[in-house]
Design a protein around this nucleic acid. Sequence first.
DNA 1: TTTTTTGTTTAAATATATTTAATAAAATTT
DNA 2: AAATTTTATTAAATATATTTAAACAAAAAA
Lengths: 301, 301
Amino acid sequence: MTYSISDLEQLSGIHSHTIRIWEQRYKALSPMRSQGNTRLYDDRQLRKLLNIVSLTKSGFKISKICSLSDEGIDKLFDQQFSYSSDDEQADYYISQLISYGLAFDECSFNDLIDQGIYKLGLSDCYRKIIYPLLVRLGLMWRKDDICPAHEHFLCNIIRQKIFTHINNLQLTGHSGEKWLLFLPEDEDHDIGLLFASYMLRMHHHQVIFLGSKVPLDSIKRVLSTVKVSHVLFFMIKSRLASTAQKIIDQLSEICSSTKIHLAGNSEVIGKLNRIDHINWFKTLGEFEKTIQYPVLHERNF
Amino acid sequence: MTYSISDLEQLSGIHSHTIRIWEQRYKALSPMRSQGNTRLYDDRQLRKLLNIVSLTKSGFKISKICSLSDEGIDKLFDQQFSYSSDDEQADYYISQLISYGLAFDECSFNDLIDQGIYKLGLSDCYRKIIYPLLVRLGLMWRKDDICPAHEHFLCNIIRQKIFTHINNLQLTGHSGEKWLLFLPEDEDHDIGLLFASYMLRMHHHQVIFLGSKVPLDSIKRVLSTVKVSHVLFFMIKSRLASTAQKIIDQLSEICSSTKIHLAGNSEVIGKLNRIDHINWFKTLGEFEKTIQYPVLHERNF
DNA sequence: TTTTTTGTTTAAATATATTTAATAAAATTT
DNA sequence: AAATTTTATTAAATATATTTAAACAAAAAA
């Protein structure tokens, strides 16, 4: 599997021009070449680029970063983005879960995650264990400690858990608020969205869950079929500001009479324009506060 | 959303040259053009191409098909690929489920599918209702009766059901056979694979479920970590024979000491070369027979 | 401020993909 | 077997993407 320079542009959010000049000036990447001299990158190079970008965003200068050896960059990245958190118990769970994942040991993973959910409830388990686990998986891929198969394996067990909990919810009545949940066409990671679906249902909201890879056009058709109060979507991947902006503008036009909510990568969302009408959930807490309110309101009647 | 001619080539399995000559000779498609005269296709054109291809495979001549009006082609396609089956009760379920899906009425869909699973068991419900429902959804998209949002909505509820049933399996011991399940990078539809996972677990096989979009490289890493007896994957999409062959050859090299099983689109799989060492499940029945055998064998001890 | 570092813009050359058109090969029909 | 229909191959022209290189502009550091 190889990437073109425009693939890297999309995946890293760094213009191809800049990728080239980093190569020329600082030897940042050393891509293979096609027969006709076109740059070809592999996963290792993509990882390196993503790590370099993260370090620049942490304030390191590109010249300084690239003066280091590959190992030096990895070490600096390790330093800046380490696995440990402040919650010891959660860290234990996470490390243990990942070590089961690395061995593709579904039974043990399953037992331990069930235990976590049983002790904390799904909501707190997600906040304290599952979400940090997903973040760590992303980091581990970037440090080449895991491969995509590990991620797929773990994510599908987690999906299984959240789907099961959604399925087992015994809902009586609802708030009258209807939420439409989806991810745009270039997004893959639907676990956060799935958890949002669970939380909304917990709080007696109706949910239309579309999952990932939904063409924006078909959102229009949903809105013309059903009365929807809220649209929620995520932008998790790094992308070019222009790509992200295009999605926002197009969706805003479609959802002129529906409240839009957005969560995800603050690097990307922070750079967006014309989002005054959009509600940005910067934390999980903000989301929970928003969805709880209407229920309290209902209780007051 | 627009497609290039090479996108259409990948999605339909028809060479771009042929798509052009069909346009020139028979006015098969009439794509928009970019500023610089490059063909641009939309969903409507893609649908039409797919329908034309299906009709040619049914024995109609391209010249005859294209001599018809758009409506004529739709009508002929309707005739050849109609929704009805021979099982009246299943047809009732399917129509009803789809009508709930069209209205995004999750509650009703949920109740009815639960009822179907309760009456038939998940296995028979899948065979008689869910699988034909998925086939009909595909047809409906090609007839422009539904949009991607409908499909996403329904598929996620179905996913929820199968995941829940997998989660609720109480497994005691296992056969010793370990199966690795995945879809290659260009495949999306993981419901069949998920059902296969359920069936295998039912029959006390161990499963490593990776889901869709797994790079072949990382399959190698799984096989070097864990002892796997069987690898199962699907090829459902239409593609160029050469694209499909490449996947097969690459996987065969990786899985030199593991039995490979394959299921999916017989149009595509039928054209493959060098698959003597691969087991092709042509029907669901064949799959069930294969996975039952080792269990019977075990009982004989 | 001045210098250095960094990222963007521009331009011309080249590579790759697409278009058009003509021809060869294969498959079907007569 | 011959004629017809259909698909594959080839070649030259054009469109689009990528490469290289230089000049420019903005930001940060001295």
